[in-house]
């Protein structure tokens, strides 16, 4: 694929923006939702609404919303959702570093398989 093609470079930039915004948004939501002191039900939602994490997550999602619409308008939907699966890999690696979630052997195999699939679609799709 020639790098000079303006449409495909735009697709690549939008794809990258989507990964970054999605990962940041998910991590912010995890920080908002995972607080054990937040209580239950309505009290939990009130607690989350008064802290920045929920709103940071929502801001990332608004940006991702627009980026994703633009991305999908340039690629076939089936290819777009497959390429978007790289978010799984990004979020698991980020979860490992920020929340200490374990990367067991099975998870590493899963990450490698998803990456392989995205690569196949990205290169040959």
């Amino acid at each position: 694929m020639p790098a000079a093609d303006p449409i495909s470079s735009l697709v690549a930039v939008l794809w990258l923006f989507n990964v970054v915004l999605d990962t940041a948004g998910q991590l912010a939501f995890k920080a908002a939702a995972g607080n054990p002191d937040a209580g239950d039900g309505l009290a939990r939602w009130k607690h989350m609404a008064t802290r920045p994490w929920l709103w940071l997550g929502i801001t990332c999602y608004v940006g991702e919303f627009l980026v994703w619409i633009a991305f999908l308008s340039l690629v076939p939907l089936s290819e777009g959702v497959l390429l978007g699966s790289i978010n799984i890999v990004a979020i698991m690696i980020a979860g490992r570093f920020l929340f200490g979630e374990k990367l067991t052997r099975l998870r590493v195999i899963g990450i490698l398989l998803v990456t392989l699939g995205v690569t196949i679609v990205g290169v040959a799709g």
């Binding site: 089936s78 290819e79 497959l82 698991m92 195999i109 990450i111 398989l113 699939g117 995205v118 290169v123």
Partner: peptide, 24 residues
């Protein structure tokens, strides 16, 4: 949208990866 070979192969690898993550 046609179900091309790269898409089927890519989707299979991705779904297999997702299953591994679910098992984990």
């Amino acid at each position: 949208e046609p179900l091309t070979l790269p898409r089927v192969l890519g989707a299979s690898a991705i779904v297999a990866g997702i299953v591994c993550l679910g098992l984990a």
